[in-house]
Amino acid sequence: MQNTLTNLLRTDHILVNVNVKDAQEAIQTLTAALVETGHVSPGFAEDVWKREQTFPTGLPTQPLAVAIPHADPDHVNKSAVCIGVLNAPVLFAQMGTDGSTSLDARLIFLLAVKEREKQVEMIGQLVKLIQTGSLLEDLAQAKDSAEALALIHKTLA
């Protein structure tokens, strides 16, 4: 059970009240939190941004759109997820499109996956989170990281 999202998530990987001007800055800000704790090296932000431009990760979830930027594991030391709750949404291109369709993403889930097969359960839990509309709404209102983490634990329980 070690590789669950419940076990992986930590308050220093949940950023609330984030002010960023665009998707690239959002990716840089979230990556910085993972660099700080040694989970990824700084090159991860560039890998993620490059990939985002070819294979976008914006998702039209309801009632709030999210983005799940990620990249190959080259710069990942240890699997982690960093969640950013933005004060104002930024444009992410929609997944499965050539980038011509964009959406306003308010919640960003930056995924750093080291070994896919060990993270299957974590990825499954992540799907549950983004499909729980009430959680997305509550997260957007969370006052601090501890509150956000508690909301997530409640949803996954």
Binding site: D72, R116, L126
Partner: peptide, 8 residues
Amino acid sequence: TGIATSTM
């Protein structure tokens, strides 16, 4: 990438 969304 064969990592995240295909696993989903």
